[in-house]
């Protein structure tokens, strides 16, 4: 086949259009530099990202572009030291304060092109703005770290429950049931505490926690003003309620068919807002105070005083156990 000059011109022109089309299609900034590091062409994304015009870009030396905003020591090192020794560089990270767009983390990839017909070299330089991606990665790492921390804390809580559940005078089965009961209370407390915006509703918490005991039993939750609780407070209250309920099933009002538990609360405004929560048992067998301090009592005292900064009164009245918890909200 004989190719005349016109064909050759058309071929080259097609090649040029194709190349420019490719450059413009690339969604990120791309520069084609000649061997003297002058811009031969640039992708559309380069102009829009760095807010520069085509006229002030093409033909310019890269270090002179946009008032010297590309005259960056790290970029100089890449172009003058790294690239001459290798044909391609991928994701070379450069952090720089650009006058038009601020501090950015850029990933530079470069590829050297050799043109055998005239022995010239050119350089394709792509620039990916990884600032947002980097920030997201950092946030993700923080979030995962926090998640791991919370998980380990939960493991520690479960460990504490297992260790605190007494084995004295219990069969293996009884120990298992007692532990699983407490574990279940912890799980339900988490459901209530962490489902909606880190706020738990007291009424919902009472209903959820006491649900396993309400079947065939009389547990009355008197309507009152809504109270929202922090997750840690919700967790404490939920564990307390579980201890009170299991105690009632074993020795108190829920050990007979005639027994009844009434729960009510008020909000009091002293110097600070206080919640007064009352658990009243009635109709059960005569009450006698316990002779030893068990896990339940310790838990109530510990959490109300230590955790909530409140106070608790346990009244072992013969007609029914009465418990009053007063805690700042």
């Amino acid at each position: 086949m004989v190719m005349n000059l016109e064909d050759l011109y058309r071929l080259r022109r097609n090649g040029y259009i194709e190349a420019q089309g490719i450059v413009d299609t690339v969604p990120y900034p791309l520069l084609l530099l000649d061997q003297n590091l002058r811009v031969r062409t640039a992708s559309r994304a380069f102009f829009s990202t760095f807010k520069v015009e085509r006229d002030e870009t093409i033909g310019q030396h890269i270090y002179d572009l946009g008032n010297g905003q590309w005259d960056i020591p790290e970029l100089r090192r890449l172009l003058e030291e790294v690239i001459p020794k290798s044909t391609a560089v991928v994701d070379y990270e450069v952090e720089h304060a650009f006058p038009s767009i601020g501090v950015r983390t850029m990933l530079l990839s470069a590829h050297r092109l050799f043109h055998p017909e005239n022995n010239s070299r050119s350089l394709l330089l792509s620039i990916v703005d990884a600032t947002d991606r980097r920030r997201l990665e950092v946030e993700k790492d923080l979030l995962l770290g926090e998640m791991r921390h919370r998980m380990k804390n939960l493991f520690a809580l479960v460990q504490a429950l297992a260790r605190q559940t007494s084995v004295d005078g219990r069969s293996g089965e009884e120990y298992r049931d007692a532990f699983l009961g407490r574990f279940g209370a912890l799980v339900r407390a988490h459901d209530v505490a962490y489902t909606q915006d880190q706020k738990a509703d007291l009424k919902e918490l009472l209903e959820q926690t006491l649900k396993p005991y309400s079947e065939g039993a009389t547990i009355v939750i008197e309507p009152s003003k809504p109270v929202s609780l922090t997750p840690s407070r919700a967790l404490s209250l939920s564990l307390i309620l579980h201890e009170l309920a299991t105690n009632a099933v074993k020795y108190g009002a829920l050990s007979t068919s005639t027994g009844k538990i009434t729960i009510r609360w008020t909000i009091e405004r002293a110097s600070k807002k206080h919640l007064r929560l009352i658990w009243q048992e009635s109709g059960g067998p005569p009450v006698t105070p316990p002779t030893t301090t068990g896990f339940g009592t310790r838990l109530i005292e510990f959490s109300v005083k230590g955790e909530m900064g409140g106070r608790v009164e346990l009244n072992y009245a013969p007609k029914g156990l009465a418990i009053e918890i007063v805690t700042p909200l």
Partner: peptide
């Protein structure tokens, strides 16, 4: 974490320690 504090307090006491705190 009060449950953990309570647990560690008891554990330390059982092993002969005198516990100062727990402080939250």
């Amino acid at each position: 974490e009060f449950l953990i504090a309570m647990d560690l307090e008891l554990l330390l006491q059982r092993h002969g320690w005198l516990v100062l705190g727990p402080a939250a």
